[in-house]
Amino acid sequence: MRGRLQGVELIARDWIGLMVEVVESPNHSEVGIKGEVVDETQNTLKIMTEKGLKVVAKRGRTFRVWYKGKIMRIKGDLINFRPEDRIKRGLMMLKRAKGVWI
């Protein structure tokens, strides 16, 4: 599939402050965690839900993200970098992928 990729910004952008829901996870009790991201590390997102702060690993999970009025699904493996590395390494990773235009 060729063409401009949607939501490239989201990989380089700040996730702090976004609404996020865990859609897929190898751990069943994590599915359905929904809330605002308050902090981020290399391997985890810290999500503030109604029941309190939850720490969810990025690898192997799929997230649903509300961003600029759109809803997107993003694989956690794509953002598995340190938050400050994500701009450089995230964009380069997409460039290396075959058939992706950014």
Binding site: E9, R13, D14, I87, L91, M92, R96
Partner: peptide, 24 residues
Amino acid sequence: MLRRDKKRESRIARERVFYLIKRA
């Protein structure tokens, strides 16, 4: 060869820096 798009990087970085300090 693949090159970094530094202009784009610094634009995104600037947005993020201002956003984070405002949020703090």
